[in-house]
């Protein structure tokens, strides 16, 4: 090709905003790395556990952004995958603890076994549910994903063997390649590593051929069909990928809390994840991380102040939607 390819590699956004985005990203990474030190410095080491939970939710929010923000698929049942991932880990631990078996398997508490297992099981369940849900679109899709999540919610409520309504506790955290995850700081960094790895993966996917098709689906499905793309398959793969990310998050959550319950799959949880994504900026992948920190941080602060914090948070959300047209990431990093 004689055409100069150098100019073809220029991104659609101007360089200044690229630089700004990099600075913000770098600052964010440094902040994540420094949080335990800050917590210790402030004499509040218990905050490390709080930040760990923020990080874990951020993973689920990023994975939701993959389908919601990039693919334009508004799933209102994302917490189901979060909960399912958590339950796989807790059930594996349950069997390992009391030496019983599930289908002949004695359970495990090794992270390198049960975390991938949580991801795989969740992906397997998400596949048929996604296949059915994606037959619909728009508002129907919102509602059917919600309904399937409710179905899984009731499933765990009714399985009394694994605690039913009351949930299922884990005696201790998983071991990671034999190493103990009991130490709060170690576990925090493990979670941050997962967040960074998952977000990097999602960012790569967004730029890839697959990501271009997925982004095209959001902008005009009709165009993608006319280009000869069987969009259903791409959306389904994205749906399963996003579920897998949420499962990882749920697996970490089970370890953080050493407890899982049907509440992890509750629809309010799905709503919160959506809030994080939108608050942070849909389709930006990094924004939802900020969204998770801000939403959970505000919840934390308000709940320390008053028991009726939702009286304030609810209207805040409404105001945000009505008046803010782009998320935090857009305001801070200038994207979109």
């Amino acid at each position: 090709m004689p055409a100069p390819l150098a100019s073809a590699q220029l991104p659609a956004t101007p360089p200044a905003s690229v630089a700004r985005r990099r600075v913000v990203l770098l600052a964010g990474c440094l902040l994540l790395a420094a949080l335990p030190a800050i917590a210790h410095g402030a004499g509040q080491p218990f905050l490390i556990a709080t930040f760990t939970r923020f990080v874990i939710y951020a993973i689920a929010a990023v994975s939701l952004d993959l389908i919601l923000g990039i693919g334009g698929l508004t799933s209102f049942g994302h917490a189901a995958w979060f909960g399912l991932g958590g339950y796989v880990v807790a059930i594996a631990a349950f069997h390992a603890q009391d030496a019983s078996t599930l289908l002949g398997w004695g359970g495990s508490t090794e992270a390198l076994v049960v975390w991938p297992l949580a991801i795989a099981v969740t992906a397997l369940v998400a596949l048929p549910i996604g296949a059915l849900s994606l037959r619909t679109s728009g508002i129907h899709f919102i509602m059917i994903t919600l309904a399937f999540a409710q179905m899984l919610f009731y499933l765990f409520v009714s399985v009394k063997f694994y605690g039913g309504d009351d949930g299922l506790a884990m005696q201790r955290r998983n071991t990671l390649a034999g190493a103990d995850l009991r130490d709060a700081t170690v576990f925090y960094y493990v979670c941050v590593a997962c967040l960074v790895a998952w977000t990097t993966l999602c960012a790569a996917i967004r730029r890839s051929r697959f990501g271009m098709v997925l982004s095209g689906c959001r902008q005009s499905e009709r165009r993608l069909l006319a280009l000869g793309y069987p969009v259903y398959r791409y959306k389904l793969v994205a749906f399963v990928l996003a579920a897998a990310g949420a499962a990882l998050s749920g697996a970490l959550w089970a370890n953080a809390a050493r407890f899982v319950s049907p509440d992890m799959l509750a629809w309010v949880k799905s709503g919160e994840l959506m809030v994080m994504v939108i608050l942070g900026g849909t389709g930006t992948l990094f924004g939802p991380i900020a969204g998770a920190f801000v939403l959970l941080g505000v919840e934390q602060l308000l709940s320390a102040w008053t028991e009726h914090w939702m009286l304030i948070l609810g209207p805040l959300l409404v105001l945000f939607v009505v008046f803010a047209r782009r998320g935090l990431w857009g305001l801070v990093a200038g994207e979109r």
């Binding site: 919102i142 009286l311 948070l313 609810g314 805040l316 409404v318 945000f320």
Partner: peptide, 24 residues
Amino acid sequence: RLYDRDHLDQVLATFGLLLFFNEL
């Protein structure tokens, strides 16, 4: 204020309302 908005915005704003009513 939500008539011409995305379904996503509608879901989010009314989700906020729901939290508010529950707590109220």
